[in-house]
Design a protein around this nucleic acid. Structure first.
Ligand SMILES: [Mn+2]
Ligand SMILES: [Mn+2]
Ligand SMILES: [Mn+2]
Ligand SMILES: [Mn+2]
Lengths: 220, 220
DNA sequence: GATGTAATTTTGATTAGTCAAAATGAGTAA
DNA sequence: TTACTCATTTTGACTAATCAAAATTACATC
């Protein structure tokens, strides 16, 4: 029933909300995230408000209602299950599935989604380690540290990579920074703005802090 | 690049053309097949003509150009491969895949399509026995007889079922009239407008001629 | 040839989604 | 207070896709 466009707006809003205090998202950041002109976002937010999918206070910001969040999580579930499917069943590379899923997430029926979920054995995360919401709309919230802040010298395991960019993901792959890989942070240099990690037998890899911040790890 | 709407118009036009002499399709039948008002079809045909996807002579009819046919066959290929995939890989029933494919055919990239094709072992027909166009746009044209006209008493094999309706397909399934099944036409009664067929050990099944005409068979 | 019918095209409107640019307003600095 | 700045909203316009209903036209019939 909701259009592809509406689904994308809601999904974006959900993701933005996760990073804001009081879940309130400014029109400016919303428009930028969706990739439309500010006035377009204002217009769309008003129609979403009419459909009771968001709450909106002029000049204050916008936030999802419960119905809106439910829908957003449903889209997110489709997106991530599709990504996992494309990698596990069709053998695509994790660096190329995001744009595919961005389209397919709007074309998968509940029935097909359920079959995919089954075929994959009800996975909890997608190829990037992003948690897959349950059909009921629950999202596991692990509190993960990033390579930029975790303890030095402790054995860690990569759990999640916070960037869908194709080039970034290929780089992460080549550097052995993919979900499931065990490693330790060898050193951190604030002046050089760099972090050095070692994964098993591999050569140590040094990356800038902004990249380190996108690799989330859990204790092992 | 072409919209979902354009893809559907072209696919429909291709299928209609197959049934007309000189490949010329009247506006009335085109509009009806797509399910829009006559004026809507006229408007769309004009924009398709601007894109050189169809030839159009006012009050005469419309026909695909080579470029239009190429595109139509590409959509048809996606549609049928998706149907086959849904049945073979995800285990959906052949009676329910058509509407799913009607949406998914617009959301599958060339890359994903190639992987699906590979995973399925390059099938030549979809679950209904419809031929799957090659990537180059070639369609195998078998000349099949239907149960309404084939020879009586000869061993035959069901090759294709010409109706995507869910209820019809469930009925065909229950009657054992699915692609691959061997059978013989026992008798044909013009007065009763009925055809009786027997498949292996099963009880004989009698159907009306209009149904018999939708079940295509090949000699075995 | 005149006329009637039915298919087709044209016209006028509508909805969803979008942008550019003008108008507005809330908060900051003076 | 008064001004200024920058985010936000409003306005006016556009495209794709659609429909209902009026106008046109090709064709068959008388
Ligand atoms: Mn999307
Ligand atoms: Mn992902
Ligand atoms: Mn379709
Ligand atoms: Mn089919």
């Amino acid at each position: 029933m909701p259009s592809t466009t509406v689904e994308d707006y809601l999904k974006r809003l959900y993701m933005l909300q996760q990073q804001t205090e009081r879940r309130l998202v400014s029109m400016g950041s919303f428009a930028a995230a969706v990739g439309v002109a500010p006035g377009t976002a204002t217009a769309m937010v008003k129609t979403l408000e009419d459909s009771r999918l968001v709450e909106y206070e002029s000049r204050q910001g916008v936030r999802l209602t419960d119905a809106g969040e439910r829908l957003a999580l449903h889209v997110l579930r489709r997106h991530r299950l599709v990504e996992q499917f494309l990698v596990e069943v069709l053998g695509l590379d994790w660096s190329e599935v995001h744009p595919e899923a961005e389209v397919l997430e709007h074309a998968i029926s509940d029935k097909v989604l359920a079959r995919i979920d089954e075929l994959l054995g009800h996975p909890e995360v997608d190829p990037h380690g992003d948690p897959i919401p349950t059909p009921a709309g629950d999202v596991a919230d692990r509190t993960l540290a990033s390579l930029a802040e975790c303890e030095i010298g402790q054995p860690m395991r990569v759990a999640q990579v916070l960037d869908q960019d194709e080039r970034f993901l290929r780089f992460a792959d080549e550097s052995g920074l993919t979900p499931g890989i065990d490693l330790t942070v060898e050193s951190r240099d604030d002046v050089a703005d760099a972090v050095t990690v070692r994964a098993g037998e591999r050569d140590a890899v040094t990356v800038g802090t902004s990249v380190a911040a996108k690799i989330l790890v859990e204790g092992v």
